[in-house]
Design a protein around this nucleic acid. Structure first.
Length: 585
RNA sequence: GGGGACGUAGUUCAGUUGGUUAGAACGCUGCCCUGUCACGGCAGAGGCCGCGGGUUCGAGUCCCGUCGUCCCCGCCA
């Protein structure tokens, strides 16, 4: 292997095969760096020593594929290269075989500046030759392998479930696959193997997992691809804590495979607390929480500020930002967004002049250091009746993240320190609400999915106060990214019916959509629950990348296009006809 | 669906207030070079300024539209 030569190999014969990474032609002496997955080695062609092979080497160009036979030689001390692992030796070429030529590539894997993403995706095979991508894909392999081994060790079976399945018009949009045999009917690609894994519990495979592709036809983001890989698992007879322990177990193994020792158990926080302290159901704990600083002000002052005293006045603290210029303060106001009818961003500098005592006190309440940036977000007095604590928290939480992103160079909280307790802030968020109110559809919709079990204690509120029902649902969060989401499921048909009823679904509708599943529930279903984690996101965070595309070999663009193969494409009239499909023009 | 950024040589970018022949670096081609390692030196080739329209005596530069990539909101049970 090109990256494996060491001084101990000196004196022995070696064969290297790989790409010409770089060529340094000094005339009668030619150096070629030969590259494969494992690294690079320097090959020397000396005209004096072997004129014929030197002549052949002068025709080599970047990205040609070659095989070189030669003697491994220890380099002189003054010519060794300490920057690469193979730098103490070189291969003195005795035989050179040109295995394949290369057209001039649009960019070189060895280049120091990256081409733009469009180019990288179109020539993905060249992009994947780059060290960074080779490393990311290897990392992903190691992580997936560690997870498989760990879950198998914990007694889980990896069991496959169908890709061509049934469309269930809940949640995300489905990718559809037309049936030729039954024209007009469609399979759907799974958004997740949710119902299959529950049925596997009913089937007696009491610990199931799968590293499996899932498909959702929704708009993309840096951390969202239309097809993505989940670590999906389900177990029978669990308390939430059992599921958490399993997850903590395989994440420990996965992070160890990537060279990081993480600490378990992860801290836990209720959904309500997460919203209150961080304004998010996936708090980034690397930054300080928000503080309600109402008490720093006299009632009259709150009135004067135009802030609703019945709702929190939230202090957002971003450490080490330092003094801001007038221009920066204006920019930050803009960053908050238009001062809406409901929310108010208070100017801290102005506050320090007009109400110095209160300013001082609120700094103390939020444990601020002199260098810290403080932003105050409250609900406006006038229209505050429309605004909930959660709504205010989320607005402030979003602003907190925008500020944190803007000043990341200053607070440095997002940089790796080498200490896993800081670098990887895991968190379990628990007790999610069972339902959310959909303003558009004027109805309650499941916050997680309709098979999630409510808290035993909240069961009686299903009809009277759906918004107050908590679910046995939990998310695992890392550095502000939702890694995974799970729940304890409903295992009794009568309760499942109640949930469908609360969702405004008639019995007939429920039967039409999930009849097979409701029937299965009637044949002795064990209590069960599970979770699914995004493998791509785990790999992304471990790779220190900002986008899933850095850890997916063949990703899609923001418009869900594969630029390399140029998919999707129209299909022929004949193909459509066979499927009984007519395309509207 | 909405908002924002970007699009100039093979690649990464610069291009002033609208003004003559659109530049640099890397890459590429040729020549020189025996210790380079992001080798060096000399010479050279390479441009539909994303595309279409408009304003203007004159557009890479201004305006409108369109296409593409990226980021965000909506959306993602």
């Amino acid at each position: 292997m090109c990256g494996g030569l060491r001084s101990s190999d000196a004196g022995s014969k070696a064969v290297l095969m790989g790409w010409v990474n770089r060529r340094r032609d000094l005339g009668n002496l030619i150096f070629v760096d030969i590259r494969d997955r494992s690294g690079v080695s320097q090959v020397v062609f000396n005209k004096e020593r072997n004129a014929a092979i030197h002549e052949k080497a002068s025709g080599l160009r970047n990205e040609y594929v070659i095989a070189v036979v030669g003697m491994v030689k220890l380099r002189d001390a003054n010519t060794s290269n300490k920057n690469i692992p193979t730098g103490e030796v070189e291969l003195v070429a005795e035989e050179l075989r040109l295995l394949n030529e290369s057209k001039q590539p649009p960019f070189l894997p060895g280049d120091t500046v990256l081409p733009n993403e469009e180019m990288r995706l179109k020539y993905r095979y060249l992009d994947l030759r780059r060290d960074a991508m080779q490393h990311n894909i290897e990392l992903r392999h190691k992580v997936a392998l560690a997870i498989r081994q760990n879950l198998s060790g914990q007694g889980f079976f990896e069991i496959e479930t169908p890709f061509m399945t049934r469309s269930t018009p809940e949640g995300a949009r489905d990718y559809l696959v037309p049936s030729r045999v039954q024209p007009g009917s469609f399979y759907a690609l799974p958004q997740s193997p949710q119902l299959f894994k529950q049925i596997l519990m009913i089937s007696g495979f009491d610990k199931y997992f799968q590293i499996v592709r899932c498909f959702r036809d929704e708009d993309l983001r840096a951390d969202r691809q239309p097809e993505f890989t989940q670590i999906d698992l389900e177990m029978s007879y669990p308390q939430p804590e059992h599921v958490w322990a399993v997850v903590e177990g395989f994440l420990t193994a996965a992070f160890k495979a990537a060279g990081h020792e993480i600490k378990t158990p992860f801290p836990r926080m209720s959904y309500d607390e997460a919203i209150r302290l961080y304004g998010s159901d996936k708090p980034d704990m690397r930054l300080p929480e928000m503080t309600d600083v109402r008490e720093a002000f006299a009632a009259a002052d709150i009135e004067k500020l135009g802030v609703n005293a019945a709702l929190p006045l939230l202090a957002i603290r971003i450490p080490k930002v330092g003094k801001l210029s007038r221009k920066e303060r204006d920019e930050n106001k803009e960053l908050f967004g238009v001062q809406t009818a409901e929310f108010n961003l208070l100017d801290m500098d102005r506050l320090e002049k007009s109400m110095p005592d209160a300013a001082e006190q609120l700094k103390g309440m939020s444990s601020a250091h002199p260098d810290d940036l403080i932003a105050l977000v409250g609900a406006k007095h006038s229209s505050a009746f429309k605004t909930s604590v959660g709504g205010l928290g989320k607005v402030a939480g979003a602003y907190r993240l925008r500020l944190a992103d803007k000043y990341r160079e200053r607070h440095k909280a997002f940089e790796r320190t080498g200490d896993p307790r800081h670098d990887f802030r895991f968190l379990w968020v628990t007790d999610f609400p069972m339902f959310e109110y959909d303003e558009e559809g004027k109805s309650w919709v499941p916050a997680h999915h309709p098979f999630t079990s409510p808290h035993e204690k909240d069961m009686n509120k299903l009809e009277s106060d759906p918004g107050a029902v908590r679910a046995l649902a939990y998310d695992v969060v890392l550095n502000g990214t939702e890694l995974g989401s799970g729940s304890i499921r409903i295992h009794r048909q009568d309760i499942q019916k109640k949930i469908f009823h609360a969702l405004g679904m008639t019995e007939d509708e429920a039967r039409a959509r999930f009849g097979f599943f409701l029937e299965a529930l009637e044949y002795g279903t064990p209590p069960h629950g599970g979770i699914a984690l995004g493998l791509d996101r785990i790999a992304m965070i471990l790779a220190g990348a900002d986008s899933l595309r850095e850890v997916i070999p063949f990703p899609k663009t923001a418009r869900a296009v594969d630029l390399m193969v140029d998919a999707p494409t129209p299909v022929s009239e004949a193909q459509l006809k066979e499927l009984g499909i007519q395309v509207k023009k």
